[in-house]
Write a protein that binds this DNA or RNA. Sequence first.
DNA 1: TCTTGTTTGCGTCAATTTGACACAAAGTAA
DNA 2: TTACTTTGTGTCAAATTGACGCAAACAAGA
Lengths: 226, 226
Amino acid sequence: MKSFSSYKNPALAIDLVVFGYHDDRLSVLLLNRKDEPFKDQWTLPGAFLQMEESFQDACDRVLGTKLGMNKVYMEQLFTFDDPARDPRGRVISVTYYALINPKKFEVVAGKMANDVQWFDVRKLPALGFDHKTIFKTAHQRLKSKILYYPVGFELLDETFTMPELHHLYECILETKIDRRNFSRKLLASEYIVETGSRREGQQNRPADLYKFNKKLKQNNFQLNIN
Amino acid sequence: MKSFSSYKNPALAIDLVVFGYHDDRLSVLLLNRKDEPFKDQWTLPGAFLQMEESFQDACDRVLGTKLGMNKVYMEQLFTFDDPARDPRGRVISVTYYALINPKKFEVVAGKMANDVQWFDVRKLPALGFDHKTIFKTAHQRLKSKILYYPVGFELLDETFTMPELHHLYECILETKIDRRNFSRKLLASEYIVETGSRREGQQNRPADLYKFNKKLKQNNFQLNIN
DNA sequence: TCTTGTTTGCGTCAATTTGACACAAAGTAA
DNA sequence: TTACTTTGTGTCAAATTGACGCAAACAAGA
């Protein structure tokens, strides 16, 4: 057996799929690369893992320095290992997806990017590396997760209306959901709490405002879509 | 920016949680280490990833050389990154869980192990590294997965009876399930097909034999347990 | 052969949940 | 006022669930 330090190791990168919801649609944050490979092309934000760094630290570093964000909901997605996924050589990518409220941050392109921009998930440009695959995996994960875990609230404001929540679900799941049955189901669950106030100054009838129930003990929510 | 090859990279290992079902209980395959660290202690089987190797290849290599198995159901679990998880230094572990039918293989301890053995999941010994955490993650994943995906069949013979399938579910979920409601639910789904024959030579009334429906188009199964 | 005990398969039924709607209340614009 | 839109609530038949009952099919023992 070779000694521990004599192994040559593949490079390790982390890549992020950052989801945001604004203007009634679901978006992903993409970065236009300033350097090769895939110079001037769009990719997911990411970085190489540094030796003493945890994944969480690396993710925070990318969010901070490349995107101007911090403290967001994040979850490990999958680790991609195709030996051909990076033209520079063997790079393993550990991926995370994040859910953020775009209103809370001003997106800034860091030094290493030409540009950083939100893209509607239905209108993505070509992506470098295997990032299209990573995105699809993340989107699928989000679709599954939101059916049984209150993950959507990360994308909305502190308070939100039932129609807003309903539209978010339709957006993510890319399907029509009966708004009355949706409302009944959500109200019966313990996900949301009434705030007592309403969204005023809108067109038509003002909608009741809710907030996420942070004291949620156990989750037995289950939204069934056919 | 440093050049690509100048990065020093953490070591990459793969570790496997191999589940088996025999003698009416759920087991995990553990390996007794011959070398430091954790010499003479039990751990999950694993190996360092080699430079040109995919995760799948590495898993197959471990299954083959250390356990004497091949071609089993396998799924990526999680990637563990705690900088302190390995006393030798920074080692990232990409983990997989596998489901096998223990009858199909004779477990062999490879050169690098004192012993390889099945352990009842309810009676695990102390484990080296962070392998207890990895095991718990795998067990939890299996519990979740089996509620909405026909993953249990990997653990059983080609044909099986309803009581056998029922007991497998109770074992994995560690809870009582009404056998009549369970049966109704499974039969209503398209998971299983009657074979027409029965398990003869047993005590009492012979049970009908079923097999897994491999032509399953889409999965809309959902087992609800409170 | 008949009885006993156990396991398996199938059925019943009330309570709950779902899916597909109707309809009134609360706003704005004309 | 009158339209028109959106939001909140209710209705109701159909389907599903949860908690059981009971008879059929076997082996073992009387």
